[in-house]
Amino acid sequence: MGVFKRAVEAILRPAGADARLGPAIVAVVVGGGIYGAVMGSFGGLAGDRGLQIVFSAVKVPLLLLLTTALALPSFFVINTVLGLRKDWPAALRAVLGAQGAVAVVLAALAPYTALWYASSGHYHRATAFNGVVFLVASVAAQGVLRRYYAPLVAANRRHLATARGWLVLYAFVAVQLGWVLRPFVGDPSLPPTFFRAGAWGNAYVVVAEVVWKAFGGVTSSR
């Protein structure tokens, strides 16, 4: 826990203008794990429900790390093509530092999620509450990303465009990966599972269908 505490300090109160990789990764694994464990505790601890806590504690850091891994190659090439290659180490540290910040904020919000679970047994509301928590963590981490990027943007305005591009790319992948890695909360009426069988699909198509149906459209697409 001492390592995590130092990582949190390094992210919240950085000594220099640059992000550091080690603390960011520790924060993602431990902070994400803490939030995941709380997130998966919706069904309680009775019987094999504890498994969902373990699964979710693994899956939240996995979500943050895999999304970054999928989005990094294109971010690297775009930085290079836009002539920002010499700043790549700093840009990489900035985006990874922001991941650490997401995890730290998530861990800090975990008690609210626990309180929500204690107050309401409604599964869909619990899922929605977690969505709000992730949204808050993402918005808060944007501030950290902006702080890391400030010296880069001051040196070259193009960094502003790539930082925004990163957010779009990251969100696009994270939404789908979050969907694929379901369940995080764990429906108490279903047995705990790492992946929900047959639940792969496309988050955007599902959202579009919901909106389409809400406006009276009929669709058969998956």
Partner: peptide, 14 residues
């Protein structure tokens, strides 16, 4: 460079 993202969506999207 976008290949991994496309592959990921291709695997997970019907």
């Amino acid at each position: 460079a976008f290949g991994p993202i496309v592959a990921f969506f291709s695997v997970t999207t019907a």
